[in-house]
Amino acid sequence: MKKRMISLIIVLIGIPAVILLGATVFSGVKYVYFTLIVSALSLAPFLISFEKKEHTVTYLVLIGVLTTLSVIGRLLFSVVPAFKPVSAMVVIAAMYFGPEAGFLTGALSALLSNFYFGQGPWTVFQMAAWGLIGFFSGLIAHRLKTSRIFLLLWGAVAGVAYSMLMDIWDAIFADGTVMLSRYLSFLVSSAGFTVMYALSNVVFLLVLAKPIGKMLERIQTKYGI
């Protein structure tokens, strides 16, 4: 619990502080670097605290498999553009295994899928974006499990949030600085994708969240973990 508080403090206070610092004190320095540093900063506390904790090997393998599932989903559903189960799988991992697992599944999904779709500086940012979606989903896991409507709403919100976060990166990457007009133009041009992200999250959560919960429960009784 204490560790979770520390991660939360870093995410909620540390990152905005760095951004503020960057904007005022070091205003000449490039925003791309800031974004990358901020992303890396949001990854570090989770990864470090995760490495220090005790885990069963089965837990680690399960997270690995959930990660692969989200990436394979991206390939399987390539018929419909932007209709991907990645965020949904991240939310599901968080729902049943908690914020840490959600974070890892999210961050590693980004990393793994970029082994196939191309790595680059954006990987760090994408890892942070999906990781945080997983982390916050884990914090409200109880609500997600008890209320279906809440779960679907959250899925839609996560889809929109992910799309808007990635637009921030694209805008900063393009200009090396924050230009509102550029960001707005990206937001508009990717609106179709944003809607699809939200929609696919809702659909996948609707179809998969419960069955996967059942499967995990079954595995728990069968193997006693």
């Binding site: 089965t58 692969t68 599932l69 399987l76 179809v207």
Partner: peptide, 29 residues
Amino acid sequence: DNLIGTVKVYAALVAWSLENAVETGRHMK
């Protein structure tokens, strides 16, 4: 039709993977 089929296949894939994952974990140990 394609989408419904793929979703069903995907769900079956999830079941298969989770089942295998546990076994793999035990083998690692």
